[in-house]
Computed example of a mutant assay.
Amino acid sequence: MPVLTGAEPFAHEGSDEIGVLLCHGFTGSPQSMRPWAEHLAAEGFSVRCPLLPGHGTRWQEMNRTRWQHWYDRVETGFGQLSARCRSTFVFGLSMGGALALRLAQRHGPEVAGLVLVNPSVTTEKRGAALLPLLSRVVPSLPGIANDIAKPGARELAYDRTPLRAAASLQELWRVVRADLDKVRQPLLLYRSAVDHVVEPVSARIVLDGVRGDDTTEVVLADSFHVATLDNDAPTIFAGSVEFARRVHEARVGEAA
């Protein structure tokens, strides 16, 4: 299945010191992370932003995938970076935040730190409990893409929400929530004050559940859900670079 123009994965071979894996969101693509990826590459970091299975083609393809397929793809990207970099970080948007948390749970201190933007680990939307049943008879519903405040900014994502894939996303959420106490890495969490896709409860669950002693929440006042393409994107980009360098320097100092 041909990949949509602009949805291609991103890779940059930079420093052997700091590597960053970027995880995009549900029904989205690396396009939503590309400005961030390019900023990190310009700072000299090694970067990977894989295209998750079922994404970047047609929404019907996504209904043939499950969360384990998406996780396996980011696991591969993480392995590529951790094999060559002294410190490997995982940054995630929305569902990508859940995948980032799962990597941290599975790999422990091999994940140097996390930067999450509007991470999703649950929903309060009406009818969510019926999704596993509904997905057996209804293939899709209207999409959730392009929740962006910045005029003219567009997200390359599906205009339909594939329900079998969405039901699998709920399974990922349950797995991640159950193991949040295993997340002890430094964490920087950006949350939009106005988000029409992910409710504030997700950020609260993450911040209350992780057990690290280096945890920071930053509220974005001028962006909606896809904040990596929105007005506050420069804040996210600069803050993530500062965070990664600070954590890396501390790790190197401890190792010495």
Rank of each mutant, 00 (worst) to 15 (best):
V241T: 14
V197W: 01
S168N: 06
N118P: 08
E43S: 08
P109T: 11
D181N: 01
E249G: 08
D159M: 13
V138M: 09
V226L: 10
A98H: 01
A11T: 08
P139C: 13
D230T: 11
R126E: 14
D72I: 13
E171Q: 15
T65S: 11
G209S: 02
R164E: 01
L229F: 14
V74D: 02
Y158A: 01
W70R: 05
Y190M: 09
E75A: 03
E61V: 02
V210H: 05
T122H: 05
G108A: 05
N231F: 00
L99W: 04
K182E: 01
E110R: 15
T65L: 01
H248V: 10
S202K: 09
D230H: 14
G14V: 02
F78N: 03
L40I: 12
E249Y: 04
G212W: 11
S32T: 10
E17K: 07
K182V: 05
R184A: 09
L131H: 14
I144R: 06
F237C: 02
V121R: 05
H107M: 12
P200E: 14
S223F: 10
E249S: 01
L180W: 05
L188F: 04
A7C: 15
A244M: 13
A167G: 03
E43C: 15
N63S: 14
R34L: 10
T161P: 07
G127F: 15
P186N: 06
H24L: 14
T228L: 08
Q80M: 15
V138R: 12
P132D: 08
S29K: 07
R184V: 03
Q31Y: 05
R174I: 09
E61F: 07
T5M: 01
F243R: 11
F78C: 03
T5Q: 14
D72W: 00
V252S: 13
T88W: 03
P9K: 03
D232T: 05
F78P: 06
G152W: 06
H12V: 08
V183M: 11
R73C: 06
G113S: 02
E242K: 15
P53Y: 00
V20D: 01
D195N: 07
R84K: 12
L188N: 08
L156R: 01
H225P: 02
G212M: 11
M62I: 04
H225T: 00
A193M: 12
V115C: 14
M62H: 01
I205V: 09
G127V: 13
R84D: 06
S15I: 02
G19E: 00
E242D: 05
P151Y: 00
V3W: 09
R58S: 15
G212I: 05
T216V: 13
G127S: 13
I148C: 14
R106V: 10
R84P: 03
A83R: 12
T235R: 14
R154Q: 12
L163E: 12
A7W: 10
A238Q: 15
